[in-house]
Computed example of a mutant assay.
Amino acid sequence: MEDIWTKRPGQTKAAAPILLLAACALWIAAGGSRGSWRYDFQNQILAGAEEMYMPGLAFLNRAQDKGAREWVREKALAWLPLVSYAEDHAVSSPAIEDEETLAKILDAQANDENAVDENGNLVGEPEPAEAAAQPAAPTVDMSIEKLRDFDYLLSNFYTVDSSTMIGPEQLNADDLLSRSMKIDNTTGGPKVIIFHTHSQEEFVDSTPGDPATSIVGMGDYLTELLNEKGIETIHDTGVYDIINGQLDRSNAYENAEASVRPLIEANPTLEVAIDLHRDGVAEGTHLVTEINGKPTAKIMYFNGLSRTRTNGDIDYLYNPYIQDNLAFSLQMQLASESLYPGFVRHIYLRAYRYNLHLLPKSLLVEAGAQTNTVAEMRNAMEVLADTLAHVILE
């Protein structure tokens, strides 16, 4: 096929700036959310190219007639494949999803909140050594001056899944650390509710069919520990991932919300909701450290951003408490690092919601994995309870 540029003398030179801008946009988009300037500039460069070289298209983008705008945009971008590719991989406005797409997104939310790749290897952080568990020492600077640096904060405390993105306006240390996570413990009534979207998660030495040795048993122990500390806690042991006698996580988050929300409404003193899970990792991975002389399962705090990289905010997974959720997990992360270095993995950010919209102080915890022992998990609950008390009690 004849090159289109050979048919239009003089256009090669005119096209060069467009291709340069498009290449820049592609490079920036590929950079993900790793820097605040890249995060802001990736949209600006596309808009600039549009204004400079396709002013009519830019005008249509500001118009109300979305149908005409999208038709012209599609035809124009057919001539600029690099710009089209960059646009597909940059931040875009929310899309109205069809039922099939919605089903796929809800399925992704239901089945995968683990920070591992398809082989079970940890994403965004090094694999732990296979040697005996060793006590750790603080390795990161947690001063407010360092935390105000978006790149530093992101790289030292977070793993961002490829399905989503986050910018400095959300990971603003001053904002997140200024939000009080303290509970009002002067009034009666329960303050914390613990539940398990995935109640069937077990450990390497769990007794099959014995909930006391599963993640539900860890919830029982954490509830006991918090009550002992004067934090009145209730434990919902409902099963949301078994349908007709079979493991089925397809609607586990929806099922859990349907039961947990009425409990929250019936107990208006509740301020904290904790969905307690255990992770799923490669069989050779052992998430363990040594704390107070005891082998202790490592944990991970988890946030859903209700935003995909491709389509932007997910309106039908709306969460008004995202910033509070982020504040809670960051304050827990910093307290964990300060009190018990080595106990926590990086906070994991994914695209969906995961019932973190139930309360402002909602927390999803991935405690250990299937390769940990029940004893390591119980030790982790002791450390988690102490850290939680440090964050939420006056």
Rank of each mutant, 00 (worst) to 15 (best):
L334Y: 14
I347R: 03
P320Q: 03
H286D: 06
L263R: 07
F328K: 01
F302R: 05
M300H: 07
K294C: 01
G280D: 08
K298L: 11
Y321K: 06
Y301M: 13
N355V: 05
V344E: 12
Q323Y: 14
T269V: 01
Y352E: 06
H357Q: 07
D279N: 13
I314C: 13
H357R: 03
T308P: 10
M332K: 08
H357V: 02
N355K: 05
R278E: 06
R261H: 01
A282D: 13
G312P: 15
S329A: 14
H286I: 11
H357S: 08
S336C: 13
I322K: 11
G304L: 07
Q323M: 15
Y318E: 08
A258H: 00
G304K: 04
S329G: 09
A266C: 06
Y340M: 14
E290I: 12
T285L: 08
N319R: 09
A282S: 15
E271L: 00
N355C: 09
Y348S: 02
R261N: 05
A335K: 12
G284K: 15
Y318A: 15
Y321G: 06
D279Y: 01
I264M: 04
E337I: 08
N325A: 08
R307K: 14
E254F: 04
V288W: 04
A266G: 09
Q323I: 13
L287V: 08
A258F: 00
R309E: 14
K294V: 04
V288G: 02
G312I: 13
H286M: 07
R261P: 09
Y301E: 12
S336I: 12
L263V: 12
F343T: 02
A327Q: 03
N255Q: 02
R345A: 04
L339A: 14
L349E: 10
I314K: 03
H277Q: 07
V344C: 14
S329W: 09
R261W: 01
L326K: 02
